[in-house]
Nucleic acid binder design. Structure first.
Lengths: 302, 302
DNA sequence: ACGAATCAATTACTTTTATTCATGAGACGA
DNA sequence: TCGTCTCATGAATAAAAGTAATTGATTCGT
């Protein structure tokens, strides 16, 4: 019979991170001896080894690997809970951890965040972009509190609210033959170089809603991380990309690029904010959604 | 600066459950005094109160409520980790926590579980049916390891595998006018009493795929928990229900009920097994999926 | 409205646990 | 092969957690 204590999780994690008990001890402000004792006791209680002792180094056993995944999952949650309690104590509101699942949304988010921060001076906003199990998983796993995503999921436990409507368009450079045409058809892209963000093809709308249904693929597919570079590539004639119209129009001052409608009816898209239903009571979270909604309503009257 | 220890989570939880420090102390095999000390120290370190002291009873503060949700989320995960380590130590494989999101699947599950248990004597199988945040949330939140569901979710972090194809049919009793007809149309149900399991209407296929698209509602909607009672009700002419064909045929020996096709083409359904991608390496989990797949293939050759 | 019962808080004390210090044994590289 | 790095160990000590006994307040039953 053994009880997993927080210190055990800390040790497993620190050892994995620093490679040795000695280094882990330093990081945890303890002596190597203290860790050795604690580890021995835990291993005795569990009746199994957490590390293979190979010479003077430690290699995790199967159980050790497992404990590591548990630690990596639970420790951040404990730490976040402490932070939040700390904030309660200081009368602060807390922090809002926002996850982003769509690259160009970042520009949009900035416009929401600045008035929000002004209105809620005692709420901190974190923005995360990488999740082990995707945005939905991050919400369920309490890694983030709010998710900005183009594809919502109406399921128990989560709420999604549409906060932004936009048109996804093709972006072309100055010399491009498609420039100025009313719209583009899928087959017209079969000889183009398509530039996208580094995400799985199944998550790219230009494939899902445009190319794949017609069984068409572009000649080449280039991957670029940042919007700026992407637009530079397009402006210099190296390829075409699919981006929100508002973003293209905003950036057309800086780069010589132009939007072209995708298909005769265009490609309508929405951005959603998602959060845990359990959190609806948190006022500053609600306020963020309201802020985003207000922004949307303002655009409507343009 | 305060560190949340496991004992703090235990205390918060036990107090919420038993209503008093004294009762909580007993449950944790400690004296009331010990808890009082620990609580005071934690509250001092945090700089805030976890409970309001009202007379001789404790009512959680906002911080206390928050701590309780954290405890309820994290403690079960710690306990499960301990169990699993224990199982590692004893050479056992572990347990497979299966969540069920569809009522009649239970019959199907039984057929998979028994050969599985025989093949994996050192794996225990738990079946859970209630989840705070739905089946998907339970998977992400490590409440369960496998989900049996009719609606999968192809998203990062989870894998869904179809394991069972069936036809959803209308079940009618012995005197029912629809008995023996080729198929039933939505409007033919507008004067019937429909019996279903107690789940939200949006999750019932008979509504989603059959009635709602034609804007038709049954005359009455009765809710029954168990399949047996449901079939008894149908057999005695109290209403009709929608169930898998195989189940109806199996039970038609015990109850005088008959299946009727839903619409001219019938209603084709699938059951899926879902699990965390992070767990694909776990052999006994994989084996369960294989078991289910094998069962499916066997049915194909009938 | 009174007395018994119950509850949390506190103090002083005890026990248990965690941590350190000093040291040893084995592995590794120069 | 020596110096240095690793983790393990035992005894000593510091720190923490726990108990017992008591108090004061509140609640409940009669």
């Amino acid at each position: 019979m053994a009880t997993l204590e927080r210190i055990h999780l800390e040790i497993v994690r620190a050892v994995a991170q620093h490679g040795s008990l000695t280094a882990a001890a330093e990081r945890l402000h303890l002596t190597q001896s203290a860790l050795s004792h604690t580890v021995r006791k835990l291993e005795d209680q569990l009746g199994l080894a957490i590390w293979y002792r190979e010479g003077r180094s430690l290699r995790p056993t199967q159980a050790g690997e497992y404990l590591l995944t548990v630690s990596n999952r639970l420790l951040p949650q404990l730490i976040h809970a402490e932070d939040r309690l700390q904030q309660f104590a200081q009368g602060e509101r807390g922090n809002l951890r926002i996850g982003m699942e769509c690259h160009p949304c970042y520009q949009w988010l900035l416009k929401i965040v600045s008035p929000y921060l002004a209105e809620w001076p005692d709420v901190d906003v974190d923005v995360k972009q990488k999740f082990q199990f995707g945005g939905i998983g991050a919400l369920f796993g309490y890694e983030i509190d709010m998710l900005v995503t183009p594809d919502p999921l109406y399921k128990t436990g989560l709420t999604f609210v549409p906060v932004f409507d936009y048109e996804q368009v093709l972006v072309v450079g100055p010399q491009h033959p498609l420039r100025g045409t009313k719209y583009v058809l899928p087959k017209q892209l079969s000889d183009e170089t398509l530039i996208t963000y580094p995400v799985a093809i199944e998550r790219l709308d230009i494939y899902n809603l445009f190319l794949t249904p017609e069984s068409i693929a572009p000649k080449r597919h280039k991957i670029i991380e940042t919007t700026d570079i992407m637009l530079q590539m397009v402006a210099s004639g190296r390829g075409v990309a699919a981006l929100p119209r508002w973003l293209v129009e905003e950036q057309s001052i800086r780069f010589d690029v132009a939007p072209v409608k995708l298909g005769p009816r265009g490609m309508a898209k929405q951005i959603f904010l998602g959060f845990r239903e359990a959190d609806v009571g948190i006022d500053y979270l609600r306020a963020f959604v309201d802020q985003a909604r207000t922004h949307r309503d303002n655009l409507r009257y343009l």
